[in-house]
């Protein structure tokens, strides 16, 4: 039999069990702080100062989160964003812009040593790191599936998208799912070009999304609890919280980088 360099997905699945995962529940934080914590926690996991972690985000304000390589001009109507009190932030991972309202999104990060995804292709690693979420959604009656490269979708429409960054031996995988969406406001603040929709078979952004409230009719908190239950059931884990040191490090990084125009507008 020919040797296979990459592990089978079943073999990789066993790797989840080799860690005791720390689970951190959501607390509302400023958009910039979420960006900074993502980087700080990834670095700490990479250095072995924090065990592998599932961190659920909370949002305290509406914002647009740009991908690392996106142009502000191409993606955002800044005049409308400012007029509507929508902040512009930029994350450390690639991928597309998201319009976030605090109660409208469910976001989490998985922070792990990159040995968790060693040998997997990028598309495999995306599906692998969100496999527990797809299972959890099935448990809520949503026939969710992974659509390569980085989308979670169902017959009811696109639910969410993931992005990854790698930093010194650690992988950051974060996913945002839509809970409910103010589509008219989204269309005011985000620019969605025709080229972007060219292979989607539809011209209207609102037909592409299927927020979870619409697909489950459950409160947002209940969906988050259900996701966490699925994670705990699947993988060895224990409850945790961000440390004072981690919060301080992230606050410093907000001041030095994430809140600066040099970062948010690095690609104007």
């Amino acid at each position: 039999m020919p040797e296979r360099a990459s592990p089978s997905l079943e073999t990789a699945e066993q790797r989840w069990l080799q860690h005791e995962w720390r689970v951190i529940g959501p607390e509302p934080r400023a958009p910039n702080m979420n960006m900074a914590l993502d980087e700080v926690l990834t670095e700490r996991v990479g250095r072995g100062e924090r065990p592998p972690t599932l961190w659920v985000w909370g949002w305290s304000a509406p914002c647009i989160v740009l991908g690392r390589f996106q142009s502000v001009r191409n993606e955002v109507n800044e005049t409308n964003a400012v007029a509507n009190g929508v902040e512009i932030v930029r994350r450390i991972s690639g991928g597309g812009a998201m319009f976030i309202q605090p109660e409208g999104a469910i976001t989490y990060s998985i922070l792990a040593p990159d040995s968790l995804v060693a040998g997997l292709t990028f598309p495999e690693s995306y599906a692998f790191l969100d496999s527990w979420v797809v299972r959890a959604l099935h448990g809520l009656g949503v026939e969710a599936r992974y659509e390569p490269l980085n989308d979670i979708t169902s017959a009811g429409g696109k639910i969410g998208g993931a992005a990854q960054a790698r930093r010194n031996g650690a992988v950051l995988h974060h996913t945002t799912m839509a809970y409910q969406m103010d589509i008219p406001l989204m269309l005011q603040v985000l620019r969605i070009g025709q080229e972007k929709l060219s292979d989607k078979g539809t011209r209207s952004a609102d037909k592409r999304v299927g927020p979870l409230r619409q697909q489950t009719e459950l409160p947002r908190d209940e969906i988050i609890s259900h996701l966490l239950d699925e994670f705990r059931r699947s993988y060895p884990s224990r409850e945790d919280a961000l440390t004072a040191e981690e919060i301080e490090a992230a606050e410093q990084r907000v001041r030095e980088r994430f809140a600066t125009r040099a970062w948010t507008h690095i690609l104007p």
Binding site: F69, S71, S93, G94, G95, A163, L267
Partner: peptide, 15 residues
């Protein structure tokens, strides 16, 4: 020249 978009690129500096 500027190249932007919703792609993924590792490492960032390769841009």
């Amino acid at each position: 020249v500027r190249v932007t978009g919703d792609f993924f690129l590792y490492p960032d500096e390769a841009l």
